[in-house]
Design a protein around this nucleic acid. Sequence first.
RNA 1: GCCCGGGUGGCGGAAUCGGUAUACGCGGCAGACUUAAAAUCUGCUGGUCGGAAGAUCGUGCGGGUUCAAGUCCCGCCCCGGGUACCA
Length: 843
Amino acid sequence: MKEYNPKEIEPKWQERWEDAKLHVAKTGDANEKFYSLETFPYPSAAGLHVGHPEGYTAEDINARYQRMNGKNVLYCMGWDAFGLPTENYAIKVGKNPKEVALDNIANFKRQLQMFGFSYDWDRELNTSDPSYYKWTQWLFLQLYKNDLAYRKHAPVNWCESCKTVLAREQVIEGACERCKNNVAQKPMEQWFFRITNYADELLDGIEGLDWIDATKEGQKNWIGKSIGAELEFAIKDDNGKIKVFTTRPDTLFGATYMVLAPEHELVDQLKDQISNWDEIENYRNEASNKTEMERVHLDKEKTGVELKGMVAINPANNKEIPVWIADYVMVSYGTGAIMAVPAHDRRDFDFAQYYNLPIKEVIALPDDSSINIKQITRGSGIGNWVGHPIEYQVSDKKTDMILGWKYDNIGQTCHTLLGTIKNSGEFDGMKVEEAKEKIIQWLEKEKIGKAATTYRLRDWLVSRQRYWGAPIPIIWCEKCGDVPVPEKDLPVLLPDDVDFNPTGEPPLASSKEFQNVDCPKCGGSARRDYETMDTFVDSSWYFLRYCSPNEESAPFNKEDVAYWLPADLYVIGAEHIALHLLYARFFCKAFADLKLVDIREPFQKIRHQGMIMGEDNQKMSKSRGNVVNPDEVIEKYGADTMRMYEMFMGPLADSKPWSTDSMKGISRFLEKIWKMQKKVFVVIPAKAGIQDYQKVLHQTIKKVTEDIQAMHHNTAISQMMILSNALHKVENIAKEDWEMILKILHPFAPHITEELWHVDHDSFIMTESWPEYDEKLAAEDEIELVVQINGKVRERHQVPADASEKDLEKIAMEGKKVSALLEGKEIVKVIVVKGKLVNIVVR
RNA sequence: GCCCGGGUGGCGGAAUCGGUAUACGCGGCAGACUUAAAAUCUGCUGGUCGGAAGAUCGUGCGGGUUCAAGUCCCGCCCCGGGUACCA
């Protein structure tokens, strides 16, 4: 028999599988469908990272397993090829981004193919190909025509280094996600998608999905729904009103001042009233010069300036209160203005302390001396100033605070009643929740406010001032305004005669050919929108295109989508929770409303892959020099070993350090499997019984089947190693057992199992059906009985698995060691756990 | 600050309806084979004490519940990830 040589057998089978079209999915097939959705990679110049094949192998194991269970599997690969890094790299090496992207794709494809992933390559797609981005543009137009895409002049996040605007989601701690440079606010005319129309549905839809809780929570937090009230404060001696949003209308009586965001439009409108305009202007300039990072960052002192000459009136008690501007209030959230309740809000409290503004308490604890106030302090922020607790625990029951009582020694277990707080007029004595409701009713009656909901989620800013993306299919005509490009003229192709170097002007503006165009409406001269779309637009619908990749009259075929979606499994990195999932779900819902698809949730089941760290347990990076190159690993060990090693490292979702040395374990295992072939007999020679390994074989089939379904690949592999250790000890293996062994190993190590299968089969192993285990053979007939005295293990016996509790107790008590230890002791109690142990409690 | 994970041998990790802690693998030690090395095979491998039998401690720390706790409860510490003047 030949040596195990992965370099020879792996490319051979990859080619033969492809020739046989073994992985082609058939839309409408009578077999049950299974859509195994893979994160399509961004093909970087650096090539494949060892992290990529982790999630991909997990998906491939699943895809192969599902096929062997008779499912019609859709499993594809594509390229998320537009994007800034490619453009920047192209500028650096003096090439066209298109060229760079194609090179990168070719390299990625070569690398991925080495792993033997069972993709249906006939459905391969590339977002930067005109045949794809034509439809990205078409979808943009559908959203535009249905008022889900719009243009707006607004302050946006601008990255000076990347020379483009960014979506809110791409700003991390005030810095650009890509280049980590500070992001500034800049007012610009930009395109947005109305994702906020779907905020509630995006929130509610999460419940029915098979996602882990952390992912669901991430989505919910990102949407950030806040329920409260919107109300107006009158401005003294003026018709103007200041509109605020609050989640705590119950604290209205405690509002002792107001704060506007520095950019708030009211400030300009009331310029004439304001006596300290120079000071205001100064502050506004300072604020606008601060980067988002400086402004948002951490525990810095709050600053602000009072708008002198301008006074607001608290509608609850008609008290005159001052109005300030301060950059701790964001123009983009709520109404850009707040009523400040320093007694019950940490930020307002800090500000009021600093500028000596009045603090008025309106909420205190209930009159209930049984409360341990210590319990309240944690998480409620009650502290020394009166924080803003809403609820706390009393006797395991959540109870509301009421408007009414005040204690000292907050934060201590002991506390004494200081008196009552009666600052809320007719609402005194109510619990918080009741007060919220009643005050909103009062606001509605007075016509100065109403219940309102605010979201953290913003509309999705999709225009970018760079080249390597899908051009926005809009023509700007002086006479007609925005005119959509007629659908027959799609795609709007990216021009080649452009200056790629970022100057602040979008590169497309430098192309004469691209810019000058006739208005489709009036025929007059017009110019194209010279911006491109965020690459997240491309990646938010690729899973639909896989269903009908060659459709020429539409982005996807509705029936095909109805057959395949939702995806039955989607393995993605946890870092995509906020952006990709949110956008893709929004697209799906919007498309459903446009009657393009019939489903509203695209991803039924999502699981995550963790990060593979360097051998030093640090993130792999060039600068640390701890990057592992998959080409070299495959060269040394082969794809099957690498696939199995990545699955054996630990739970899929955990981050875990790479160890090339540890790969030896897998390599030895596969060598053993290879050599085992010579023990296989059609007719077992009489001398050696097969019963020596059958129990563990059937236990292994059971465990591997369960573990694949639960995606516990590491323990499935452990169990197969236990089986191989058992087989190592026997002389002969029956042919039908050997076939089952190859089948269960196949999803993990497809090449070696295909090679060994073909020793005496002509079929492909994946077309065979998944083996069933025999429950009787897998069952243990003997177990080890553990005998404990006072919980400590003292003796062990081999006993029949079905021994009764009585028998177990008898065996335990009669044990040589145990009976000696029991000498002279009083037996208090005997606990028998059938099939496991006996614990004797003595005194 | 808030939200989510997670702390188990020298290392990656098993075991969570409470029931033998450390499966499987790496590494290490000893032996076999070999002129030798590699590869392979066999055995051992949590700490401490002990020649051994065995005893005893042991899943981040401190308490608790239980016949029995890595697992449940309370209070902390540390690490990783996400997120933030969100009113």
